[in-house]
Amino acid sequence: MAEIVQITVNGATHRLSLEPDVPLLYLLRNDLGLNGPKFGCGLGQCGACTVLLGAEAVRSCVAPVGAIGDLPVTTLEGIGTAQNPHPLQRAFIAEQAAQCGYCINGMIMQAKALLDHKRDPSDADIRAALADNLCRCGTHHRIIRAVRRAAREMQS
């Protein structure tokens, strides 16, 4: 049965009438019109749908809206915009870290969670943090460089 779900996304609170088992991804994409989180597998395997729940990177394709509770959701749109990009977004542009770019939402959000608790990660830390985020275009090295660049920029 549909319930009233109250949810805070990118700083704004929304009340929606939804089945509680609807995956968060569809609320974000279709009710709120956000583009950042992508459908990749719907199975929690690829990372394309990653968002932040509180400070944690989660797979929105397997997170039911009824289980979100009071934790705020942050999407790619919530960390910065084309006009005012987050250091990670700036770094991905500077390193030209995308081919098709479909995976990049997940890469940036997963990296954001990493940098939020580890300011100066090694390459091995970055690789480990992104190990469950898949990229088919082979953009891995640019992504690692972009995360490193963002870490540098955020420290200075």
Partner: peptide, 21 residues
Amino acid sequence: LQRIDIPAKVTGGAIYVQDMR
């Protein structure tokens, strides 16, 4: 030269057919 499609791709711009509404 920087690719013209990358800024939208890293900020959640509507650029893919998946993003069309």
